[in-house]
């Protein structure tokens, strides 16, 4: 889908769903798969429009995935005009901005009947702290059922409207969300027979504590 085509889809979706906040997310890689970012409250309605619109007919939701973005400091090079030693010069300055972390859920939509696609739809949560909620699109595409469960399982995103939101790959009693970028593996591995260096430090936690000599 080219950028112009996506802009048109965006305009049509905005007309069909009043109040929807849509924006095009550009993709700089050579394949140029740009995507459409939709606000969570209108995500379901926009997705329904994409599915039912006779020009698009995106009846097949191929892929659902989550992405975790941590809090980050973005640095951007900005050219600034400055007076250096009485002469006006253009100087490059690094402008730093802080970005709050967020989670994203990405849907890759294709049309089987019209053989077109992909249209990529993104939902973004406001932050990373629990609970993070987005709208479930499973009522529109059954194929999202297991995949949204997987995103819930591994990223901890709660899908409002999902009929059967349970853990799918991890076991039910598992507490954490392993695909998050700040996940720390529990230190309960079977330690090496001949531990050394870092491994030794970690393994010490598992060894029986030497009893204090009386």
């Amino acid at each position: 889908m080219s950028l112009e085509a996506l802009e048109q889809i965006k305009a049509r979706a905005e007309a069909a769903v009043p109040g929807a906040l849509l924006s095009v997310v550009k993709n700089d890689s050579p394949c140029a798969q740009h995507s459409l970012l939709v606000d969570v409250p209108h995500a379901y309605a926009v997705a329904q429009f994409l599915r039912d619109d006779p020009q698009l007919r995106l009846d097949y939701c191929s892929n659902v995935t989550g992405i975790d973005f941590l809090d980050a400091e973005l640095s951007e090079k900005v050219k600034v005009k400055k007076v250096v030693d009485g002469v006006e010069k253009e100087v490059e300055e690094v402008k730093k901005t802080k970005r709050a972390g967020y989670l994203e859920v990405v849907y890759h939509l294709y049309s089987i009947s019209l053989k077109q696609g992909p249209v990529i739809l993104r939902q973004r949560t406001p932050g990373r702290a629990d609970p993070v909620r987005v709208a479930s699109l499973t009522p529109l595409w059954r194929s999202a059922e297991f995949q949204e469960r997987e995103v819930f399982d591994l990223y901890g995103v709660i899908f409002d409207g999902h009929p059967d939101l349970r853990r799918i790959l991890m076991w039910d009693g598992f507490k954490d969300y392993p695909m998050r970028k700040d996940y720390v593996e529990p230190d309960d591995y079977e330690y090496e027979p001949t531990p050394h260096d870092e491994v030794l430090e970690k393994a010490k936690a598992h060894l029986p504590k030497p009893e204090a000599k009386a």
Binding site: S29, C31, Q33, I67, H108, I120
Partner: peptide, 24 residues
């Protein structure tokens, strides 16, 4: 090191559509 961006590629494997989504 690919440049920042994302790509979704898919092929018809014997079992169905196998896709890889990559974000760089």
């Amino acid at each position: 090191r690919p440049k920042p961006g994302e790509a979704y590629g898919r092929i018809e494997t014997p079992k169905g559509e196998l896709g890889f989504y990559l974000l760089s």
